[in-house]
Design a protein around this nucleic acid. Sequence first.
DNA 1: AAGTGGTCTAGACCACGCG
DNA 2: GCGTGGTCTAGACCACTTA
Lengths: 233, 233
Amino acid sequence: MNTQTFRNWQRVQEEVLRRIHAREWLPGDLIPNEADLAIEFGCARSTVNRALRSLADSGLLDRRRKAGTRVAAEPVAKATLNIAVIRHEIEEHGARYGYMLIARSLVAPPLHISGAMQTQPMQEMLHVRALHLADETPYAFEERWVNPSVVPDALSEGFEKLSANEWLLKHAPYTHGDIAFSSVQAEPEVAEILDVPPHSALFAIDRLTWDNQASVTKVCLLFAPGYKLRTQI
Amino acid sequence: MNTQTFRNWQRVQEEVLRRIHAREWLPGDLIPNEADLAIEFGCARSTVNRALRSLADSGLLDRRRKAGTRVAAEPVAKATLNIAVIRHEIEEHGARYGYMLIARSLVAPPLHISGAMQTQPMQEMLHVRALHLADETPYAFEERWVNPSVVPDALSEGFEKLSANEWLLKHAPYTHGDIAFSSVQAEPEVAEILDVPPHSALFAIDRLTWDNQASVTKVCLLFAPGYKLRTQI
DNA sequence: AAGTGGTCTAGACCACGCG
DNA sequence: GCGTGGTCTAGACCACTTA
């Protein structure tokens, strides 16, 4: 029944992709329903369903009950970024990872931090500043706020050898988070830490994670010039 | 059989998520196999399979035949970015979209372009430079190379009113692409176009798309300071 | 060798949302 | 109303990988 011995739904998917790409089915076109395609491909409807659902997830198809399945008029490219631990990212490039703690304190945060994290303005938070290095060269500066009422164990962790970046991933589960990528000019202090000229263009990743309704941690990572975040679409 | 009338697999998924999050199942732990979970949840194995497969896709579970399913020791956060047409991005923010063509020519590209696009060095390519505006303010500078042997129709398109960004999405299908995000200093010429101080930190998106083995287009988008690319994890 | 997840099937019921 | 996709089931076979 299969022309290959396995992954029949991928065969279906590839054939559908081929038809879209060969412009047999044009953007906006209604394609045959699942039952008809199942007959055509000689497989069960659920196999067709899996193939089409997967393509709809990637944005190439628009599916609506009763209205049927259409080729997306303007496919939205979806790029999936893997946000790994910085140590792994560096080691994957074949470089030697280094870590330096710059500061660690328990203080009341600035208002824009307590505001974003929705904590009481006077509540003390754990503040950690650290540097990640690749082959002894500054790679990324990390500035982080940790909510101690959600992660009390963090108070007894010095972050001297193990980065907060890595410690939190193992000890502080989160349910969801917001992430933003941007470009910023290096302030003099950060420029010195990263050993780059003042006002260099740095790649910034801002991340705020939540454990249900409570904020876990807010981090800003500033990457030295030359950093690129890559992926495929 | 369902406690809600629909989406039973999501109930299973949420219960598994709850157990991971409540640390009933710790990172690295082996969880019960599909058949046992199906009995426990009173549903078919394929329902459990869908729930667990979906969690494995998001990086929270590691699944291997015979070895079973484990809670990921270090969940890799996967951020999905929707790379939309710039016009839509601006209009979604409630701003008025504007477009200005700066230059359009057919020339032999620099070597690093023909190299990346794997075209013959002397082969002429369509070169387009344009500006996207939000509420009359420069938003992003677009510099693009289009492979005319893959998209011949582009030669008869002036890109005076409709941006290449938008035109290509409708007229030039692609099978895959590479994308990179980085931070760059504005060169004087670009700074003037974007109306920002020289050496401003710009957010850059580099994209190279392919139609099977042939490169379709290579584009560099430079966003004015303040731009942020946001998503959820 | 044996247990696990990956896939497929044939059939079923139903939520949704066009018309 | 009714066609469509969304989901679920019970069962089956098999690829993979570890023990």
